[in-house]
Structure formats: structure tokens, C-alpha cells
Design a binder for these strands. Structure first.
Length: 255
DNA sequence: CTGGGGACGGGGCCC
DNA sequence: GGGGCCCCGTCCCCA
């Protein structure tokens, strides 16, 4: 179970509305851009959702490139949902997040995320049409659905099928031929061709084709960024920047 | 070297 | 069960 959504799921109940998000908090955004992301309630951000790299597991810091899933560390900083809430978006959603059940150890659910681009592997392993998934009837504890293209394992067939799409890449761009696992990924890609940028920043009117990029951009407007150096307290908009900062000397200990 | 943007991957949740 | 969307996150590249 790679990734941090395991934490997110608690508040994922409510769908954020970016269109609102982008303009509803115009006023507050001036001061706390991030708040807009997480909602009008900027407290979640200003109260210390900034990540302290010093508390991050060494593993995360050193190998985060491939194992950000270890992120759980920072989550425990102030709240179990710090991670998601800080970067999350719309207000309502934020509310849900901040109130997400304080799971005792959400951290343990994380597994090293491997940015395994095994899509290529699949071609060598076996034809997709053969038998996409191997169902392992582990009637005992939990059913395990194993991907035959990679070592991944899922507890539901649906999840496995979804995953398999990342191998089969059924969505192909008619313009450049690039293939994607999901339709919406393809749509996002198509924007790179059309130039469409539906996500605009309420602060600088800059537009983005990708919502995530807007989110990252909004960080640049934040007075206090999401990721904080445990040594110098300097904050960064991206984990990668914090990592660079750390490895470059400031936080030699945290590397 | 740092900061930021572009593009994209992937699991979860809701409908 | 599947599609759509969300959010989180990463890598690459450029200013």
C-alpha cells in the first residue's frame, strides 16, 4: 500500500471544488495562499503543518526519491492529517481532513513507493489478454490479488485491475501516440497539446493545465511553505527543495 | 544552486 | 464493477 492517500482517505469524502477554491478565498489568500488550498481555515497551515525535515525518517530523506511513502513521519508532527491537509485543497475538504480520525499509526500503512515503471516489463512478461490478474484465494486472512506484471499485491480485484491499467496503458493520445493508464491522465496530457489551462492561480492569474501544478504553485505564494528545515527553520514549497537544502549542508545531520 | 513549472503516475473514494 | 475525479507525490528541466 504505497502512498499517503491512506491518510487522505479519511477526509476524501468531500470533493474539493477547485473552481471555488481558486476564488473563494481571495482575501485570505493574500495572506495565506496555502489556506486557500486547504480551505478558508488557514489555521491548519499556519499552526505547524510545515514539515520538519529533521523528523523525517532517514530513509525518507535519503531515498525519498523512490520511497516517499515513508512520509508518515511528518504526519505525526502535529496531526495525523498534516500531510494531506496541508497540501490538500478546498475548505470543506480540509475540515474533513482536520477531523479525520486520528488513526493510531497511519504511518505503518505506508510502504515504500517504488516509482517502478514496469510498464515496459509487462511486455516481456506475458500478454495482457492472457490473464491479467492472478487471484490468490487466500481465504484465510485476506484475499490477495497479485499483479502478474509486477510484485504488487492488492486486496481487491478492482484495485488490481486499476493497477493493471498502468501496465496496459489503454488510453492513447491520438496526437502523439503516448499511452496512459487512465482517461483523465490522457486528458491532462492532451492539454499539453491544446495549451488549455483550466486551473488558474487566484493570486497571480497564472494558469495551469494540471491541478497538482497549481497546488504546487500556490505554495510559492505561501508565507510559510509546507516543508520546513529542522535546522534553520527555512521553509520550502517542495520536498525536493528541502532535500536539496538539507543535503547541501544546512542540515547535514538530517541527511 | 535554488526555486518553480510542466508532465505524469497511481491508489482511494464517490457516483 | 467501472468511470471519473481527487490528492499526493516525483522527476525533469529551465530560469
Amino acid at each position: 500500500m504505497p502512498r499517503s492517500f491512506l491518510v487522505k482517505k479519511y477526509f476524501a469524502k468531500q470533493k474539493p471544488n477547485y473552481s471555488e477554491l481558486e476564488c473563494q478565498n481571495d482575501t485570505s489568500l493574500e495572506r495565506y495562499p496555502l489556506a486557500e488550498l486547504s480551505s478558508a481555515d488557514n489555521t491548519c497551515f499556519t499552526t505547524g503543518l510545515v514539515w520538519d525535515l529533521s523528523v523525517l525518517p532517514a530513509l525518507y530523506l535519503s531515498t525519498s526519491q523512490t520511497e516517499p511513502s515513508a512520509t508518515p513521519g511528518p504526519l505525526d508532527l502535529s496531526s495525523p492529517s498534516s500531510l494531506s491537509s496541508s497540501a490538500s485543497s478546498s475548505g470543506e475538504e480540509d475540515e474533513g481532513r482536520t477531523s479525520d480520525p486520528p488513526s493510531p499509526e497511519p504511518v505503518h500503512t505506508y510502504a515504500p513507493r517504488q516509482r517502478m515503471k514496469c510498464t515496459g516489463v509487462m511486455a516481456h512478461i506475458s500478454p495482457p489478454e492472457e490473464e491479467e490478474e492472478r487471484e490468490t484465494p487466500v481465504t484465510a486472512a485476506r484475499p490477495a490479488f497479485l499483479c502478474k506484471h509486477c510484485p504488487k499485491e492488492y486486496t481487491s480485484l478492482g484495485a488490481l485491475k486499476m493497477h493493471i491499467r498502468s501496465h496496459t496503458l489503454p488510453c492513447v493520445c491520438t496526437t502523439c501516440g503516448k499511452a496512459f493508464s487512465r482517461p483523465w491522465l490522457l486528458r491532462g496530457h492532451i492539454r499539453t497539446h491544446t495549451g488549455e489551462r483550466p486551473f488558474s492561480c487566484p493570486h497571480c492569474n497564472r494558469a495551469f493545465a494540471d491541478r497538482s501544478n497549481l497546488r504546487a504553485h500556490l505554495q510559492t505564494h505561501a508565507e510559510v511553505k509546507k516543508y520546513q528545515c529542522g535546522v534553520c527553520s527555512r521553509t520550502f514549497s517542495r520536498m525536493s527543495l528541502l532535500q536539496k537544502h538539507s543535503s547541501s549542508g544546512c542540515c547535514s545531520t538530517s541527511v
